[in-house]
Nucleic acid binder design. Structure first.
Lengths: 137, 137
DNA sequence: GTTTTAGTCCACATGTTTGGTGGGGTAAAC
DNA sequence: GTTTACCCCACCAAACATGTGGACTAAAAC
């Protein structure tokens, strides 16, 4: 399951996608409009900024805004960033690969199954972008 | 990611699938062959028994064994049982559905995306069974 | 029928993650 | 130089993950 943090991140990103190219948006505005705890949201947005997804301005007229075209930001990228690995086993993860203990990958049926799950999942997450977060018109 | 518990469960089930129709297998044997902590494994197997996946015999000649044909036991069933929901959001879960807070499902893009992810995942997990845990010959 | 074998059950311990909060610091605008 | 608003650090409680220990029970063997 996605953590609350991830769900908050997506809510915020959806809001910033709506407001794309309309200047910086206050944390407090996102917080109240999307019902996300203010201080928690602060941490999340900062993390997204450090990951180059968002940028910010300080002082009056400041706030957060998308650094890139939302159509170019993949859902998979956000999930990996905020939620962690997408794969269900370390040994089938592309971005967080780690060898399994006591498990020969070439002779592990679970490995193969979870690789298929990973591919099926990525097939969706890598093709969806932030614009897909907005409800259809 | 799958919990260690889930990984242990699959290791044990793979072993019991190998030994299907060969009588009960000792917990201690599974533990040593598959390198799973004995007492932890005990809890896991008991849980699988209560869920009607396994059955057991006490006393000499006793142990655990698969209650059904391994080809009839879906990977999805085990994951749900030991690891919890397969979907990434409560609001798209078939077996653990729960409404999201402050989220209109009909107007939530993330909802749709995660529904697609769920379907893609289930497409694999519902078609794979315990026999697929064994390495290919 | 008592001993041995092996699963059952419950309680607890410990470490990590999750979901937050509080408060001061810093940079930009006015 | 005051106000605005993001930046950064430290801490906190609850939940969950990953086990362990010990007593109990049922079945088989003798």
């Amino acid at each position: 399951m996605l953590s609350k943090k991830s769900q908050y991140a997506f809510k915020a990103l959806a809001y910033l996608t709506e407001k794309y190219n309309q200047g910086p948006v206050l944390i407090s505005e996102i917080s109240s409009k999307k019902k996300v705890p203010l201080k928690f949201l602060e941490n999340i947005l900062l993390e997204l900024k450090k990951a180059d997804i968002l940028d910010s301005k300080k002082g009056k007229g400041g706030g957060y805004y998308l650094k890139k075209d939302p159509a170019q930001v993949r859902v998979a990228t956000i999930v990996r960033l905020v939620n962690g690995p997408i794969a269900m086993l370390p040994c089938v993860s592309l971005n967080f690969y780690h060898r399994c203990d006591n498990c020969d990958e070439t002779a592990c049926g679970l490995h193969d199954i979870m690789k298929q799950v990973r591919d099926a999942t990525l097939n969706v997450m890598e093709t969806k972008t932030l614009v897909d977060l907005l409800p259809m018109k």
